[in-house]
Amino acid sequence: MAETLSRSQNPREWLAFALVWGSAALVTATFCWLLGDIVWHGLSHVSWTFLTAPPENAGRRGGIGPILVSTSLILGVCLAVSLPIGIGTAVLLAEFTSDQSLFGRMTRRSLDVLAGVPSIVFGLFGNAFFCKTLGLGFSILSGGLTLACMVLPILIRSTEEGFRAVPASYRLSAAALGLSRTTTLVHLLLPAAVPGLLVGLVLGVGRAIAETAALIFTSGYVDRMPESLLDSGRALSIHIFDLSMNVSGGDANAYASTLVLVIMLLAINGTASWLATYGLHRKVVTV
């Protein structure tokens, strides 16, 4: 009653109502358009052969087999490096340093900046440091290492959240029983922090798979099947970029590759939010 009264009195309320619903509708429509377009054009080209066959004629025909292999190798290198460093840093920040300590503050701030660094700048850095200075050249290794630097902030932040969500009573009771901190960490805190860690892992994987700009001049363009980590390998996102920009007549395969990439990312994001909810749920039940 009060609402209808004020609405009829106040055209501003009506305008706001229309604007808010309008923007939500606009965003939803755009999203559906984008996704629908990709699914519509891409679906007919995706098949088992497409996923396994090597690309032919600069990618106009053939599939994306070697490209998927390169992508997973880059991802593997990225995780193998970023996981230990990320978890270690998160443990140190959450459990072994106070929020006031200089070391903790400096690390945190530098990670904040790192999280904002544009991917193309990571590309420049990776090219100068891993490819040139360390002499790794255009290779899967360089690309993976560059991505590792990039996903670290995400990984650290959500792992740290995971540790902070562990009730303080675990730490107190463990200390009161005279358990060492290593034991407390390994047997009590780490298992309890696993949901946060997994969310970080999944988000990091998502960011790594989505990345293009940082890989163009670190892991390179070569679309052959890589033979070692020191070979150049083309990531899926670079393949899409190359097909749509540099190869005329590559649109059909570009659509199909885009669809594959989008499905991978939707699956990853779904996993992340499922994990986040499931992890929270479990915590509520057990404590």
Partner: peptide, 20 residues
């Protein structure tokens, strides 16, 4: 040695806190 000390002195908290 704090670890030894805490072994010799047990503590029970207000809220029961068994490990999970």
């Amino acid at each position: 040695n704090v670890i030894q000390l805490r072994r010799r002195i047990g503590m029970i908290f207000q809220k029961p806190n068994p490990f999970p």
